[in-house]
Amino acid sequence: MTDRALVVVRAGALTTVQDRGRPGHAHLGVPRSGALDGPTAALVNRLVGNPPEAAVLETTVNGCAVRPRSAVTVAVGGAPCPVSVDGRPVAWGAPVRVSAGALLDVGAVASGVRGYVAVSGGIAVEPVLGSRSTDLLSGLGPAPLADGTVLPLGTPADVHARVDVAPQPAPPAELVLRVTPGPRDDWFTPEALRTFTSRTYRVSSASNRIGLRTEGPALDRAVPGELPSEGMVLGAVQVPPDGRPVVFLADHPTTGGYPVIAVVHPHDLPATAQAAPGTPLRFINKRHH
């Protein structure tokens, strides 16, 4: 019997298991969760012959190191970083064979923030509501990796990957997010609406999987007071009392009481996974482009 599992040797700053998340349960207060950069998670899965929904590892800034108990194929994508097997450099963004007991080290990122590590067979922790994703807001799904964690692996598909290498977008030097105004743009002054789509913000170091926080000009409200709690979507740009917009990412709360000035186009969200603190950020009005 083969022992299909990964032993975590170095968990890294924050490494979680992610798949496509658990949409469809927001009415119970369950965030959708899932990989912040879904296209990259699907791509590294494809490189190792997994279906796109297989669970991968999402690393943060300084990678991780794991030791498979049986031979596996892995692929590392997302933020560019050095990758090694037993100390020997191997390819990033391409399938790599790792023999049983060898040490796969995913190094610190050269740029960007999050790495995606696919392993043939996929990470096979027990699903919760149909997903293996770690949700850092609600605590659903497996805990973030710790040194010594053992992660079960699934059975690899009996197909070979059709791609050897695949182009991946470089981490953005400037993040440009197209937005559709509303639903609560009328809660802000006309000046705030102009500021929002004309000035440059910077990505705040307080950003996480729940939200991309920003530093920059505060947005003034035209309507004071509290908004009764209402449902929130992925990509909603919520403006808390400090006036700095927050873009809701995968682990966002399902309801919220601060007004949403606009919603980011879904195609622009994966890039937020790689926006390091300090990255310039502009919101542009989709209706004007």
């Binding site: 469809g24 927001a26 009415h27 209402e230």
Partner: peptide, 15 residues
Amino acid sequence: VREIVPAARTVLLDG
């Protein structure tokens, strides 16, 4: 629709 999320004075329909 993917999500129907009621709240205090609203219902959100997503997807």
